[in-house]
Design a protein around this nucleic acid. Structure first.
Lengths: 162, 162
DNA sequence: AGATATTTGTTATGGCGCATAACTGTTATG
DNA sequence: CATAACAGTTATGCGCCATAACAAATATCT
């Protein structure tokens, strides 16, 4: 607050500061996320995937025969939005909508062999690019970052939601 | 990979895991950001602001007489998107578009008294809500989180952008 | 000075992620 | 058997972001 008062900065060349905003965790989170998100989208595009379809494919690969509503809950999104995602994955022959024996409402989602393979390849590519993007952080810092992010995520799990 | 093989989990009650996704920094970042973003949007709505208009207002308050292109650069967005934002703020009498003496192309954006006041109030409310959302993190952890996020943000500043 | 390039703001347009609401068919519950 | 609860679906709109093309003003270069 001491140096660099409230002068008119119009003439100053360099990047215009957003110090006030950067003090907000939400804003800093947004900037960091936006960087990684843009890059991830570009990488996934090379596999014919988008962020949401990749995410869904990951969950489906991890837990076979799950239903769409479970998928929605896992990804913290509304059921309605999973429909298009699952449609896309199904039409690309990456997953299958199987019927479940005693419940004709729900589907049992299962990844095809092609789906699992694409998932593996895309994940490798993503991790490679994340390693580049996060090159400034050492292993300990990355681990700490993840720990803190998960803490935020799990905190409100029962709390604010509504 | 050892325990909890590839069984059909359809019957298992609890939340469906997305462990594989959680190992990606981008995904964990997304989840944490989404939590804070949703909450922040709700808070700002009470002030008649959205996240982008609040962000712009913050930068304009901090550095008076800045131009729209500088605003765009500060917020890492395209110039074209600042137009609607500045329009909105101007129509709400929170900022003014002043002409600059020797350049008839650009505007000198300046917050009004009402704009500065609203910004102050909204910021206080935002900080209060962030304190709640981040209650699980102690002061040291919050500071470390910010440091790591800024590191990510500033890393690619010269790098990947293209 | 005059042709050319660059900068600033603007408009139009589309994509992506997300939410809500209303509906159908199916299963569970009283 | 009537009613409620659930799974999936459809339609729709909002918010944020990017790209492309354009007019007016300014900078640059010969």
């Amino acid at each position: 607050m001491a140096r660099d008062g409230e002068d008119t900065v119009t003439e100053g060349a360099g990047p215009v500061p957003d110090r006030a905003l950067r003090r907000l965790t939400g804003y800093s989170l947004k900037r960091a996320y936006n960087r990684l998100q843009t890059d991830a989208a570009r990488v996934l595009d090379g596999f014919g995937l988008r962020i949401t379809t990749y995410s869904a494919l990951s969950v489906i690969c991890a837990t076979p025969d799950l239903r769409q509503s479970q998928l929605a809950e896992a990804l913290s999104m509304e059921r309605s939005n999973t429909v298009v995602i699952v449609d896309t994955l199904e039409q690309a022959d990456l997953i299958e909508r199987r019927r479940v024996p005693h419940d004709r409402r729900s589907y049992a989602l299962r990844a095809t062999k092609a789906g699992r393979r694409l998932f593996t390849d895309a994940t490798a590519a993503l991790e490679r690019h994340e390693d580049e993007m996060l090159g400034a952080l050492d292993a300990g810092e990355r681990e700490e970052l993840m720990r803190l992010l998960h803490k935020i995520d799990e905190t409100g799990a029962n709390g604010v939601r509504g």
